[in-house]
Amino acid sequence: MAHVVVERSFPTPQSDEDLSRVEDQLAPCSGMHGVVWKRSVLSLDRRHMICEYDAPDAETVRKVQREAGAAFDHIWSGEIIGG
């Protein structure tokens, strides 16, 4: 499994309901493709987010995001360093 990062930016601050809606759209697609959400970090202004996944590869995460209609800026595989 690869560690995959999804970077997102939003034109307006996102409410908890906005974020839940996207999560609900992603869950079925993620399950079908073996993509597992690990955690997300939301900026204090609620306009930028980084989401981390375990997945077969970055392309699979791109496919899931597109199928679910979830907007993203960048998707890339990385290595966890440190704690």
Rank of each mutant, 00 (worst) to 15 (best):
M1Y: 08
H3R: 08
V4F: 01
V4W: 02
R8G: 04
R8K: 13
S9H: 11
F10I: 06
P13Y: 00
Q14P: 03
D16K: 03
D18K: 04
L19G: 10
S20N: 08
E23Y: 08
D24M: 07
Q25L: 15
L26I: 07
C29T: 05
S30H: 05
G31Y: 01
G34E: 00
V35E: 00
V36E: 05
V41F: 14
L42E: 05
L42R: 10
S43V: 02
L44Q: 04
M49C: 09
I50N: 02
C51M: 07
C51N: 09
C51T: 14
E52T: 03
E52D: 02
E52I: 04
A55P: 08
P56G: 02
A58K: 12
E59Q: 10
T60G: 07
V61H: 09
R62F: 03
K63N: 09
K63C: 02
V64Q: 01
V64E: 05
V64W: 05
V64M: 06
E67C: 11
A68M: 05
A68K: 03
A70I: 04
A71W: 11
D73G: 06
H74R: 14
I75W: 06
I75Q: 03
S77C: 08
S77N: 10
G78M: 10
E79W: 07
E79L: 05
I80Y: 10
G82K: 04
G82D: 05
G83K: 15
